[in-house]
């Protein structure tokens, strides 16, 4: 049975029997603008399948009105819970109230809304500042007191991941005078941006002699920087340490062959903790905290990077 016919037939069943079978969960996803987003969708489906839920998926294609329409339709279908990855922060009050009146719990994934927090059960997300801090702490531990001049590849100027990941990193190294950010530029979260900016840094710092580590706000920029370091005749991972955030599959290949040192995971599995919270809520009415922070796991060369690559490569990144 294909997914679509499955969905259609269960919709009828759900409407006629009032959900006496599997739990029905509506998921309003933003779209598929990035590999990470695609992986989040894949993992949500996998989690739902494992737990025997009937997941109704709706792709909003980056439009809030599509998401609102999807939520209204979920409410009309009488689903048991709604997962929402909101495309923007504002304008959700009315539709969340409708869900609340229908007594359908809503869980926010990955991003926040500005509505009152009694309109949703909980929000699952990562702490961007914390991610930066984990990366910073790794560097602090790795250089162990030796002097280290760091080149920072920022995300798109003004974006919240760029601001928060910079803040977290700076907080982690604040008390360690041996670590200093000497160069910081935006690489726009892209590989070519990371490569271009890194080339400039290498030149500005005596062909790379003055740089001990690169901190990139995402893995793609780190992968670009690795190429630039290679082409400058240096060894990334040895001559210059490379640490970044996201944990996309490609960076594990680089870690496996020693060109990158560490990455901090922004897990696309937001649905797992969300479903855990839902199950507890359904079981005995346990009200979860308003924010569930996903783990920001650190992966290094010691953490079987090849194995991590294999488990991630088919998630749709």
């Amino acid at each position: 049975m294909t997914y679509k016919t499955f969905l259609a037939s269960t919709a009828i069943v759900a409407l006629t029997t009032g959900g006496a079978f599997a739990q029905v969960i509506g998921f309003s996803q933003i779209g598929s603008e990035s590999g990470w987003r695609a992986a989040e969708t894949t993992l949500t489906r996998m989690e739902a399948e494992e737990r025997g839920y009937d997941l109704r998926f709706s792709d909003a294609q980056q439009r809030q009105e599509n998401q609102i329409a999807a939520i209204r339709s979920f409410v009309a279908q009488g689903v048991d819970a709604i997962l929402l990855a909101p495309v923007v922060e504002t304008g959700w009050d009315a539709v969340l109230e409708e869900a609340a009146e229908a007594e359908i719990p809503v869980i926010l994934l990955d991003r926040m809304v500005d509505s009152s927090d009694d309109l949703y059960l909980t929000a699952v997300g990562s702490d961007l500042v914390h991610e930066g801090a984990v990366a910073g702490q790794w560097l602090v531990d790795t250089v162990a007191g030796e002097d280290c001049r760091v080149a920072e590849l920022q995300g798109t100027t003004g974006s919240s991941p760029a601001i928060d990941r910079k803040t977290g990193f700076e907080q982690a190294i604040a008390d360690h005078d041996n670590i200093e950010i000497v160069r910081s530029q935006t690489g726009d979260f892209t590989r070519s941006g990371g490569k271009t900016v890194m080339e400039g840094f290498l030149q500005a710092e005596g062909g790379g002699a003055g740089i001990c580590a690169v901190y990139a706000h995402n893995d793609d920029m780190a992968l670009g920087a690795i190429q630039a370091i290679n082409e400058a005749g240096l060894k990334p991972g040895e001559d210059i340490l490379v640490v970044s955030i996201d944990a996309v599959p490609d960076v594990f290949l680089a870690i496996a062959n020693g060109e990158a040192n560490a990455t901090v995971e922004l897990t696309p599995n937001m649905a797992g903790p969300a479903f855990d919270a839902l199950e507890a809520y359904w079981a005995d009415g346990t009200v979860p905290p308003k924010f569930i922070q996903t783990e920001s796991t650190l992966y290094t060369q010691a953490d079987d990077p090849q194995g991590e690559y294999d488990t991630r490569k088919d998630l749709g990144y």
Partner: peptide
């Protein structure tokens, strides 16, 4: 240059 085709960027 980046040994990869990045359709978005």
């Amino acid at each position: 240059d980046i040994r990869g085709a990045d359709a978005n960027n």
